[in-house]
Design a protein around this nucleic acid. Structure first.
Length: 567
RNA sequence: UGGGGUGUAGCCAAGUAGGUAAGGCAACUGGUUUUGGUCCAGUCAUCCGAGGGUUCAAAUCCUUCCACCCCAGCCA
């Protein structure tokens, strides 16, 4: 069995454009016809986030592409941090993202007895010993990065004594920390991981699955390679920080002479304007900087789901970011692109005015109501249409009117004509101001000849704006989300600051919008595009008489960019 | 000289048995358009962290140097 990963295989015509992992798997399959069996191995001590999405898409994606399998395995070897609450959420999130483990749901804790037997085997072959140094002493004996460590005085214990001690550890004869089981490797190894790593520790704590059956628990390094081996994993993919652990992964499997999977490391995901570390996400939740793990601003899968991000968009994102070994920070704009790309093709359009200002059509009869049939999707007739009422008083977006139009502005302004989407051309004749100087009403006339939004004389209007009939409008709460952090890299802390100092104070703004009546038909979880505004999803906070929408993403706004540039 | 990993455009990322820099996002130009959305066409690295060398030819080979990341949990 190979101890270390083979040299990167050279690319062939078959592997052109593939990432290094797919290239390697392709080579492995050509060489030994091996099937592919991967696993996604989260520790159930927190909620899954975008970083996990990368791993899920990689592991399950590989299995699908190479006609193999991917297991879901909970790495639950630390009873004090883990809980079933997390396994439930992880199961849900993986499934939502499209990962199908086909019933192969495993737990490291299922292997506790086997792992224990492997540990005894290691003791018998002289590869492991019980150490009775304290944690502090062990640390001191380990040496430093530049200086070799020293051997523990207990390192030379006989096999019999080690076996006896280890069995008594299991039997509960000792308190936490009294002894540990260590691999007997090399205290002067340059790779610190190899300086007699701890394999088992005593922990008198109930485990969320095994209860109080055990009081000794195996460490990650001992558990992971053997779990992979027991499950017949072919390619064990993990993030780069585990690369130093690979030597130990290989050492244990060799020492036990069991089936030997290959560990392959890739760079973890970083995204601008957010944080992707479990530790920081916990702080955000526990410090009440957000409203829980599924706050739509969180980069957690449940947060993104509630935000309205489709699983398809996330999968697309994961394939677009690629897999490599270089540290990288992906632009948030790529995620937004993936979201818009999917939503543009899959979301019905509807009109809603976020910041309303009243328009009165002075030449439109009072009390009259006209009804327009509008397509739900301009490019896809399959979405059908809905009826939209039109009347004398409307709401339009404050942004769509200027007393003084800047150049290139082709929306409503005194004397200007615009098209009300799918309805009529209107021309602004007058503006009524309130006592404080703000605009209270815009008076317009409409051209009856332009019903439907085009004129028989063929004259063109540059602007088309959305609108809602005031009398028929449905008030809805709209939650506008923005980046959680105000800076691209909140992790780059300096001068006594923490990432919390970079929180964006405007990451959530709640407003009341006026929506067209058809919006009342939306059910929780339904996605819509508010035309010219963005994509939204109806939130679970909605009640029968109170509708809440979360903004998933804005539409691209070229005009805003142009106007900003001209300032 | 602890060990390991990585450096290709603003951000990702192919290309590495040497043959003259894919693709995507962003940005920018123009066209279409009853969403300033979408869509379409186009522009965007004389250069691959830096220097030196080998060669007819180097991002790819050799060499020196620089920068960044990871490792001293009885966490994973």
């Amino acid at each position: 069995m190979n101890d270390t990963a083979p040299k990167e295989p050279t690319a062939t015509d078959d592997t052109l454009g593939m990432d290094f992992i797919r290239t390697r798997i392709t080579a492995d399959m050509a060489a030994r016809g091996a099937h592919v069996h991967t696993r996604f191995p989260p520790e159930p001590n927190g909620y899954l986030h975008l970083g996990h999405a990368k791993s899920i898409c990689l592991n399950f994606g590989l299995a699908k592409e190479f006609q193999g399998q991917c297991n879901l395995r909970f790495d639950d070897t630390n009873p004090e941090k883990e809980d079933t609450e997390y396994v439930d959420s992880i199961r849900e999130d993986v499934h939502w993202l499209g990962g199908d483990w086909e019933g192969r749901e495993f737990y490291a804790s299922d292997y506790f007895e086997k792992l224990y037997q492997f540990a005894e085997q290691l003791i018998r072959s002289g590869h492991a010993y019980v150490d009775s140094l304290s944690a502090d002493e062990i640390r001191a004996y380990r040496g430093t990065l530049k200086e070799a460590g020293r051997e523990s005085p207990y390192r030379a214990r006989s096999v019999e004594e080690n076996l006896d001690l280890f069995r008594r550890m299991r039997a509960g004869e000792f308190k936490d920390g009294e002894h540990v089981l260590r691999a007997k490797i090399d205290m002067s190894a340059a790779n610190v991981v190899m300086r007699d790593p701890t394999l088992y520790r005593i922990r008198h704590a109930p485990h969320h699955r095994t209860g109080d059956t055990w009081c000794v628990y195996p460490m990650y390094d001992f558990t992971h390679c053997l779990s992979d081996s027991l499950e017949g994993i072919t390619h064990s993919l993990c993030t780069l920080e585990f690369i130093n652990n690979r030597e130990l992964y290989d050492w244990i499997l060799n020492a036990l002479d069991v089936y030997h999977p290959q560990q392959i490391e890739f760079a973890r995901l970083n995204l601008t304007y957010t944080v992707l570390s479990k530790r920081k996400l916990i702080q955000l939740v526990e410090g009440n900087y957000v409203h829980g793990w599924d706050d739509p601003r969180m980069p957690t899968l449940c947060g993104l789901r509630r935000r309205g991000v489709p699983a398809e968009a996330l999968r697309d994102f994961c394939t677009r970011i690629g897999i490599a070994r270089a540290d990288s920070t992906v632009d948030y704009s790529l995620l937004e692109f993936c979201i818009r790309e999917y939503l543009n093709a899959h979301t019905p359009r509807v009109m809603s005015v976020l910041n309303p200002v009243k328009v009165v059509i002075t030449n439109y009869p009072e009390g009259q109501v006209d009804t327009f049939d509008m397509p739900y999707h301009p490019e896809d007739p399959a979405y059908g249409s809905r009826k939209v009422p039109f009347s004398r008083e409307l709401y339009i977006e404050q942004d769509d009117f200027r007393l003084e139009a800047p150049k290139k502005y082709h929306r409503l302004a005194p004397g200007a004509e615009v098209r009300l989407r799918y309805a009529y051309y209107i021309t602004c004749q007058d503006v009524v101001k309130a006592a404080d100087g703000s605009i209270s009403e815009i008076h317009c006339t409409y051209d009856p000849e332009t019903r439907g939004g085009s004129s028989p004389d063929g004259r063109k209007v540059k602007g088309t704006i959305h609108w809602v009939s005031a009398a028929h409008a449905l008030p809805v709460e709209v939650r506008l989300y923005d980046h959680l952090f105000a800076v691209e890299n909140p992790n780059a802390t300096g001068a006594g600051k923490t990432f919390l100092d970079y929180l964006n104070p405007d990451s959530l703004r709640s407003i009341t919008a006026q929506a067209e009546p058809a919006v009342a038909d939306c059910k929780t979880g339904d996605r819509v595009q508010f035309e010219r505004v963005g994509y939204f999803i109806k939130d679970a906070d909605s009640h029968p008489n109170h509708t809440v929408f979360n903004r998933t993403a804005t539409l691209k706004d070229t005009w805003a960019k142009v106007e900003k540039r001209n300032l």
